[in-house]
Design a protein around this nucleic acid. Structure first.
Lengths: 166, 166
DNA sequence: GTATTTGTTGATACTCAGTATTGACAAGAG
DNA sequence: CTCTTGTCAATACTGAGTATCAACAAATAC
Protein backbone atom coordinates (compact mmCIF):
# COMPACT_ATOMS: atom_id res chain seq x y z
CA UNK A 1 0.00 0.00 0.00
CA UNK A 2 1.96 3.03 -1.23
CA UNK A 3 1.37 6.33 0.50
CA UNK A 4 0.12 8.37 -2.41
CA UNK A 5 -1.27 11.59 -1.08
CA UNK A 6 -3.46 13.59 -3.42
CA UNK A 7 -3.53 16.59 -1.10
CA UNK A 8 -2.26 19.96 -2.21
CA UNK A 9 0.41 21.62 -0.11
CA UNK A 10 -2.04 24.25 1.07
CA UNK A 11 -4.60 21.64 2.08
CA UNK A 12 -1.91 19.89 4.10
CA UNK A 13 -0.94 23.11 5.85
CA UNK A 14 -4.58 23.85 6.53
CA UNK A 15 -5.20 20.40 7.98
CA UNK A 16 -2.10 20.66 10.14
CA UNK A 17 -3.07 23.98 11.65
CA UNK A 18 -6.59 22.67 12.21
CA UNK A 19 -5.18 19.84 14.28
CA UNK A 20 -2.88 22.08 16.27
CA UNK A 21 -5.69 24.57 16.83
CA UNK A 22 -7.98 21.83 18.11
CA UNK A 23 -5.33 20.69 20.58
CA UNK A 24 -4.71 24.23 21.75
CA UNK A 25 -8.41 24.90 22.17
CA UNK A 26 -8.65 21.76 24.24
CA UNK A 27 -5.99 23.09 26.58
CA UNK A 28 -3.38 20.54 25.66
CA UNK A 29 0.28 21.38 25.72
CA UNK A 30 2.08 21.86 22.46
CA UNK A 31 4.96 19.43 22.30
CA UNK A 32 7.37 18.25 19.66
CA UNK A 33 5.76 14.76 19.34
CA UNK A 34 2.34 16.29 18.85
CA UNK A 35 3.60 18.63 16.18
CA UNK A 36 5.26 15.69 14.43
CA UNK A 37 2.10 13.66 14.59
CA UNK A 38 -0.04 16.57 13.38
CA UNK A 39 2.25 17.06 10.41
CA UNK A 40 2.12 13.35 9.64
CA UNK A 41 -1.64 13.11 9.81
CA UNK A 42 -2.15 16.28 7.80
CA UNK A 43 -0.11 14.81 4.97
CA UNK A 44 -2.31 11.71 4.70
CA UNK A 45 -5.34 11.89 2.45
CA UNK A 46 -6.48 8.35 3.20
CA UNK A 47 -7.55 6.33 6.21
CA UNK A 48 -4.84 4.65 8.25
CA UNK A 49 -4.25 2.30 11.14
CA UNK A 50 -2.49 3.33 14.32
CA UNK A 51 0.36 0.93 13.61
CA UNK A 52 1.03 2.58 10.26
CA UNK A 53 1.62 5.81 12.12
CA UNK A 54 3.79 4.08 14.69
CA UNK A 55 5.90 2.65 11.88
CA UNK A 56 6.01 6.01 10.10
CA UNK A 57 7.25 7.93 13.14
CA UNK A 58 10.00 5.80 14.67
CA UNK A 59 11.11 8.72 16.80
CA UNK A 60 7.90 8.59 18.84
CA UNK A 61 6.83 5.98 21.35
CA UNK A 62 3.85 3.73 20.73
CA UNK A 63 2.08 4.94 23.84
CA UNK A 64 2.43 8.55 22.79
CA UNK A 65 0.95 7.87 19.40
CA UNK A 66 -1.99 5.90 20.77
CA UNK A 67 -2.58 8.52 23.45
CA UNK A 68 -2.50 11.34 20.97
CA UNK A 69 -4.75 9.58 18.47
CA UNK A 70 -7.28 9.03 21.25
CA UNK A 71 -6.95 12.66 22.24
CA UNK A 72 -7.60 13.78 18.68
CA UNK A 73 -10.65 11.55 18.49
CA UNK A 74 -11.96 13.07 21.74
CA UNK A 75 -11.29 16.54 20.45
CA UNK A 76 -13.26 15.70 17.33
CA UNK A 77 -10.59 16.30 14.73
CA UNK A 78 -10.02 12.63 14.01
CA UNK A 79 -12.47 9.81 13.66
CA UNK A 80 -12.21 6.10 14.02
CA UNK A 81 -14.24 3.67 11.95
CA UNK A 82 -14.24 -0.11 11.96
CA UNK A 83 -13.49 -2.30 8.96
CA UNK A 84 -15.82 -5.25 8.42
CA UNK A 85 -13.53 -7.46 10.49
CA UNK A 86 -13.61 -4.94 13.31
CA UNK A 87 -10.11 -3.55 12.89
CA UNK A 88 -10.02 0.21 13.38
CA UNK A 89 -9.10 2.83 10.81
CA UNK A 90 -8.55 6.49 11.53
CA UNK A 91 -9.25 9.39 9.23
CA UNK A 92 -9.31 13.16 9.55
CA UNK A 93 -12.72 14.41 10.46
CA UNK A 94 -14.15 17.08 8.20
CA UNK A 95 -17.84 17.16 8.92
CA UNK A 96 -18.99 16.64 12.46
CA UNK A 97 -21.61 14.04 13.26
CA UNK A 98 -21.53 11.75 10.30
CA UNK A 99 -21.42 8.10 9.43
CA UNK A 100 -18.99 6.04 7.42
CA UNK A 101 -18.98 4.60 3.97
CA UNK A 102 -16.10 2.14 3.92
CA UNK A 103 -14.67 0.54 0.79
CA UNK A 104 -13.99 -3.12 1.54
CA UNK A 105 -11.41 -3.29 -1.24
CA UNK A 106 -9.12 -0.31 -0.68
CA UNK A 107 -10.17 0.74 2.81
CA UNK A 108 -11.10 4.25 1.74
CA UNK A 109 -13.45 5.90 4.25
CA UNK A 110 -15.94 8.54 3.24
CA UNK A 111 -18.07 10.45 5.64
CA UNK A 112 -21.69 11.15 5.00
CA UNK A 113 -24.77 12.57 6.59
CA UNK A 114 -28.20 11.73 5.38
CA UNK A 115 -31.63 12.58 6.75
CA UNK A 116 -32.77 8.98 6.38
CA UNK A 117 -30.28 8.00 9.06
CA UNK A 118 -31.47 10.66 11.46
CA UNK A 119 -35.03 9.65 10.75
CA UNK A 120 -34.19 6.05 11.49
CA UNK A 121 -32.51 7.04 14.76
CA UNK A 122 -35.52 9.05 15.83
CA UNK A 123 -37.78 6.09 15.06
CA UNK A 124 -35.56 3.72 17.01
CA UNK A 125 -35.39 6.12 19.93
CA UNK A 126 -39.16 5.92 20.12
CA UNK A 127 -39.15 2.17 19.59
CA UNK A 128 -36.75 1.13 22.33
CA UNK A 129 -38.01 2.09 25.74
CA UNK A 130 -34.65 3.09 27.15
CA UNK A 131 -32.46 6.06 26.47
CA UNK A 132 -30.03 5.67 23.60
CA UNK A 133 -26.57 6.86 24.55
CA UNK A 134 -24.88 6.34 21.22
CA UNK A 135 -24.82 4.46 17.98
CA UNK A 136 -22.52 3.13 15.35
CA UNK A 137 -23.32 2.88 11.69
CA UNK A 138 -21.02 1.77 8.95
CA UNK A 139 -21.94 1.02 5.37
CA UNK A 140 -19.59 -1.19 3.38
CA UNK A 141 -19.27 -0.96 -0.38
CA UNK A 142 -16.83 -1.12 -3.24
CA UNK A 143 -15.90 2.39 -4.21
CA UNK A 144 -16.05 3.72 -7.76
CA UNK A 145 -12.29 3.42 -8.27
CA UNK A 146 -12.18 -0.18 -7.12
CA UNK A 147 -15.19 -1.11 -9.16
CA UNK A 148 -13.62 0.39 -12.27
CA UNK A 149 -10.32 -1.35 -11.79
CA UNK A 150 -12.32 -4.53 -11.41
CA UNK A 151 -10.59 -5.47 -8.19
CA UNK A 152 -12.27 -7.43 -5.45
CA UNK A 153 -14.93 -9.21 -7.41
CA UNK A 154 -15.26 -11.37 -4.31
CA UNK A 155 -15.57 -9.91 -0.88
CA UNK A 156 -12.08 -9.45 0.48
CA UNK A 157 -12.50 -9.82 4.20
CA UNK A 158 -16.18 -9.92 4.92
CA UNK A 159 -15.76 -12.69 7.43
CA UNK A 160 -15.65 -11.86 11.08
CA UNK A 161 -17.85 -9.32 12.77
CA UNK A 162 -21.53 -9.08 12.25
CA UNK A 163 -22.02 -7.68 8.79
CA UNK A 164 -25.07 -8.22 6.69
CA UNK A 165 -24.42 -8.69 3.02
CA UNK A 166 -27.87 -9.89 1.85
CA UNK B 1 -19.15 -11.09 36.38
CA UNK B 2 -20.92 -14.17 37.76
CA UNK B 3 -22.36 -16.63 35.29
CA UNK B 4 -26.00 -16.44 36.26
CA UNK B 5 -27.99 -18.12 33.58
CA UNK B 6 -31.70 -17.50 33.60
CA UNK B 7 -32.32 -20.22 31.03
CA UNK B 8 -34.54 -23.17 31.79
CA UNK B 9 -33.09 -26.64 31.37
CA UNK B 10 -35.27 -27.27 28.35
CA UNK B 11 -34.22 -24.01 26.72
CA UNK B 12 -30.60 -25.00 27.22
CA UNK B 13 -31.19 -28.42 25.67
CA UNK B 14 -33.03 -26.79 22.79
CA UNK B 15 -30.24 -24.31 22.18
CA UNK B 16 -27.63 -27.05 22.33
CA UNK B 17 -29.35 -29.22 19.76
CA UNK B 18 -29.86 -26.16 17.56
CA UNK B 19 -26.14 -25.58 17.54
CA UNK B 20 -25.29 -29.21 16.84
CA UNK B 21 -27.93 -29.36 14.10
CA UNK B 22 -26.50 -26.25 12.45
CA UNK B 23 -23.03 -27.77 12.44
CA UNK B 24 -24.32 -31.04 11.04
CA UNK B 25 -26.29 -29.26 8.35
CA UNK B 26 -23.16 -27.38 7.40
CA UNK B 27 -21.36 -30.69 6.90
CA UNK B 28 -18.99 -30.27 9.80
CA UNK B 29 -17.77 -33.25 11.76
CA UNK B 30 -19.13 -33.88 15.19
CA UNK B 31 -16.26 -33.92 17.62
CA UNK B 32 -15.90 -33.88 21.36
CA UNK B 33 -14.58 -30.26 21.49
CA UNK B 34 -17.50 -29.05 19.42
CA UNK B 35 -19.98 -30.83 21.63
CA UNK B 36 -18.32 -29.30 24.69
CA UNK B 37 -18.44 -25.85 23.15
CA UNK B 38 -22.07 -26.27 22.09
CA UNK B 39 -23.03 -27.30 25.61
CA UNK B 40 -21.16 -24.35 27.04
CA UNK B 41 -22.72 -21.81 24.70
CA UNK B 42 -26.20 -23.22 25.14
CA UNK B 43 -25.94 -22.71 28.89
CA UNK B 44 -25.18 -19.02 28.54
CA UNK B 45 -28.09 -16.62 28.42
CA UNK B 46 -25.93 -13.54 28.05
CA UNK B 47 -23.37 -12.19 25.64
CA UNK B 48 -19.78 -13.27 26.11
CA UNK B 49 -16.26 -12.71 24.86
CA UNK B 50 -14.20 -15.42 23.19
CA UNK B 51 -11.68 -15.33 26.02
CA UNK B 52 -14.39 -16.07 28.58
CA UNK B 53 -15.08 -19.27 26.69
CA UNK B 54 -11.40 -20.07 26.44
CA UNK B 55 -11.11 -19.65 30.21
CA UNK B 56 -14.25 -21.69 30.81
CA UNK B 57 -13.11 -24.66 28.73
CA UNK B 58 -9.51 -25.27 29.73
CA UNK B 59 -9.59 -28.66 28.04
CA UNK B 60 -9.87 -27.03 24.60
CA UNK B 61 -7.21 -25.14 22.70
CA UNK B 62 -7.60 -21.44 21.98
CA UNK B 63 -7.40 -21.99 18.24
CA UNK B 64 -10.18 -24.55 18.35
CA UNK B 65 -12.45 -22.22 20.22
CA UNK B 66 -11.79 -19.27 17.92
CA UNK B 67 -12.20 -21.50 14.85
CA UNK B 68 -15.45 -22.93 16.12
CA UNK B 69 -16.87 -19.56 17.11
CA UNK B 70 -16.10 -18.28 13.64
CA UNK B 71 -17.68 -21.37 12.17
CA UNK B 72 -20.83 -20.83 14.21
CA UNK B 73 -20.97 -17.21 13.09
CA UNK B 74 -20.66 -18.32 9.46
CA UNK B 75 -23.33 -20.92 9.98
CA UNK B 76 -25.57 -18.21 11.39
CA UNK B 77 -26.24 -19.68 14.81
CA UNK B 78 -24.01 -17.20 16.62
CA UNK B 79 -23.56 -13.51 16.14
CA UNK B 80 -20.85 -11.08 16.96
CA UNK B 81 -21.47 -7.49 17.95
CA UNK B 82 -19.02 -4.75 18.89
CA UNK B 83 -19.04 -2.90 22.19
CA UNK B 84 -18.55 0.88 22.01
CA UNK B 85 -14.80 0.43 22.38
CA UNK B 86 -14.79 -2.05 19.51
CA UNK B 87 -14.26 -5.20 21.54
CA UNK B 88 -16.34 -8.09 20.24
CA UNK B 89 -19.12 -9.89 22.09
CA UNK B 90 -20.80 -13.07 20.93
CA UNK B 91 -24.38 -14.08 21.54
CA UNK B 92 -26.63 -16.84 20.30
CA UNK B 93 -28.53 -15.77 17.24
CA UNK B 94 -32.29 -16.16 17.42
CA UNK B 95 -33.69 -14.00 14.67
CA UNK B 96 -31.83 -13.82 11.41
CA UNK B 97 -30.94 -10.47 9.88
CA UNK B 98 -31.17 -8.12 12.79
CA UNK B 99 -29.27 -5.34 14.47
CA UNK B 100 -27.98 -4.91 17.97
CA UNK B 101 -29.09 -2.99 20.98
CA UNK B 102 -26.16 -3.09 23.36
CA UNK B 103 -26.29 -2.05 27.01
CA UNK B 104 -23.15 -0.06 27.79
CA UNK B 105 -23.45 -0.87 31.48
CA UNK B 106 -23.94 -4.63 31.64
CA UNK B 107 -23.07 -5.62 28.09
CA UNK B 108 -26.41 -7.26 27.43
CA UNK B 109 -27.10 -7.58 23.71
CA UNK B 110 -30.61 -7.61 22.32
CA UNK B 111 -31.44 -8.22 18.74
CA UNK B 112 -34.02 -6.21 16.89
CA UNK B 113 -35.48 -5.64 13.49
CA UNK B 114 -37.30 -2.51 12.57
CA UNK B 115 -38.69 -1.28 9.29
CA UNK B 116 -37.14 2.16 9.81
CA UNK B 117 -33.72 0.56 9.49
CA UNK B 118 -34.61 -1.20 6.25
CA UNK B 119 -36.09 2.03 4.96
CA UNK B 120 -32.89 3.87 5.82
CA UNK B 121 -30.79 1.22 4.07
CA UNK B 122 -32.91 1.46 0.94
CA UNK B 123 -32.53 5.23 0.97
CA UNK B 124 -28.77 4.98 1.42
CA UNK B 125 -28.52 2.41 -1.34
CA UNK B 126 -30.09 4.94 -3.66
CA UNK B 127 -27.98 7.77 -2.27
CA UNK B 128 -24.53 6.24 -2.67
CA UNK B 129 -23.73 5.49 -6.26
CA UNK B 130 -21.91 2.25 -5.61
CA UNK B 131 -23.15 -1.15 -4.58
CA UNK B 132 -23.49 -1.67 -0.85
CA UNK B 133 -22.04 -5.02 0.18
CA UNK B 134 -22.88 -4.88 3.86
CA UNK B 135 -23.52 -2.72 6.86
CA UNK B 136 -23.10 -2.58 10.57
CA UNK B 137 -25.49 -0.93 12.97
CA UNK B 138 -25.28 -0.93 16.71
CA UNK B 139 -27.37 1.15 19.09
CA UNK B 140 -25.98 1.71 22.57
CA UNK B 141 -28.21 2.31 25.56
CA UNK B 142 -28.62 1.59 29.25
CA UNK B 143 -31.04 -1.26 29.63
CA UNK B 144 -34.07 -1.18 31.90
CA UNK B 145 -32.41 -3.28 34.59
CA UNK B 146 -29.31 -1.07 34.71
CA UNK B 147 -31.38 2.10 34.73
CA UNK B 148 -33.41 0.82 37.65
CA UNK B 149 -30.42 -0.20 39.68
CA UNK B 150 -29.08 3.26 39.01
CA UNK B 151 -25.73 1.96 37.82
CA UNK B 152 -23.65 3.72 35.24
CA UNK B 153 -24.86 7.25 35.68
CA UNK B 154 -21.80 8.16 33.65
CA UNK B 155 -20.88 6.41 30.48
CA UNK B 156 -18.76 3.45 31.41
CA UNK B 157 -16.50 3.01 28.42
CA UNK B 158 -17.74 5.28 25.71
CA UNK B 159 -14.24 6.31 24.76
CA UNK B 160 -12.62 4.75 21.76
CA UNK B 161 -14.34 4.00 18.50
CA UNK B 162 -16.59 6.39 16.71
CA UNK B 163 -19.79 6.59 18.69
CA UNK B 164 -22.15 9.49 18.65
CA UNK B 165 -23.64 10.33 21.99
CA UNK B 166 -25.18 13.79 21.28
C1' DG C 1 15.46 34.49 35.07
C1' DT C 2 14.63 30.83 38.08
C1' DA C 3 11.57 27.76 40.61
C1' DT C 4 7.68 25.01 40.58
C1' DT C 5 4.00 22.37 39.14
C1' DT C 6 1.71 19.52 36.34
C1' DG C 7 1.11 17.54 31.76
C1' DT C 8 3.70 14.58 28.72
C1' DT C 9 6.96 11.27 27.16
C1' DG C 10 9.02 6.76 26.08
C1' DA C 11 10.46 2.14 27.69
C1' DT C 12 8.78 -1.85 29.10
C1' DA C 13 5.62 -5.10 29.99
C1' DC C 14 1.21 -6.49 29.86
C1' DT C 15 -3.82 -7.71 28.02
C1' DC C 16 -7.13 -9.02 24.63
C1' DA C 17 -8.47 -10.75 20.17
C1' DG C 18 -7.34 -13.15 17.13
C1' DT C 19 -4.30 -15.84 12.95
C1' DA C 20 -0.57 -19.06 11.06
C1' DT C 21 1.75 -23.26 11.38
C1' DT C 22 2.33 -27.91 12.12
C1' DG C 23 2.49 -32.61 13.63
C1' DA C 24 -0.74 -35.69 15.73
C1' DC C 25 -5.10 -37.66 15.67
C1' DA C 26 -9.65 -39.31 14.90
C1' DA C 27 -14.35 -39.22 12.17
C1' DG C 28 -16.48 -41.22 8.86
C1' DA C 29 -16.54 -42.97 3.96
C1' DG C 30 -15.55 -47.04 1.38
C1' DC D 1 -10.17 -52.00 8.59
C1' DT D 2 -7.96 -48.71 6.13
C1' DC D 3 -7.35 -44.36 4.31
C1' DT D 4 -8.33 -39.67 3.60
C1' DT D 5 -9.19 -35.47 5.19
C1' DG D 6 -11.17 -32.60 8.67
C1' DT D 7 -10.01 -31.31 13.09
C1' DC D 8 -7.11 -30.79 17.21
C1' DA D 9 -3.71 -28.62 20.62
C1' DA D 10 0.55 -26.28 21.13
C1' DT D 11 3.22 -22.72 19.99
C1' DA D 12 4.38 -18.56 18.29
C1' DC D 13 3.12 -14.63 16.12
C1' DT D 14 0.47 -9.99 14.87
C1' DG D 15 -2.41 -5.92 15.79
C1' DA D 16 -4.44 -2.87 18.90
C1' DG D 17 -4.20 -1.20 22.46
C1' DT D 18 -3.48 -0.13 28.19
C1' DA D 19 -0.69 0.24 32.72
C1' DT D 20 3.19 1.73 35.02
C1' DC D 21 6.60 4.84 36.11
C1' DA D 22 10.79 7.43 36.17
C1' DA D 23 12.55 11.28 33.48
C1' DC D 24 11.45 15.42 31.47
C1' DA D 25 9.71 19.73 29.68
C1' DA D 26 5.70 23.55 29.15
C1' DA D 27 3.37 26.86 31.08
C1' DT D 28 3.00 29.42 35.11
C1' DA D 29 4.13 31.73 39.30
C1' DC D 30 7.50 34.39 41.62
Amino acid sequence: MTTVSTKSASAVAQAESNILAALEEHGSRMTWPRRELAAMLARRADAFSAEEIVAGLPGLGRATIYRTLRLLVEVGILCKAAMPDGSPRYSLDDVHHHHHLVCVVCGRIDEFRHPSVERMLRAMKAHVGSELVGHRLELYHRCAACRESGQGGEDIHMHGTHVHAH
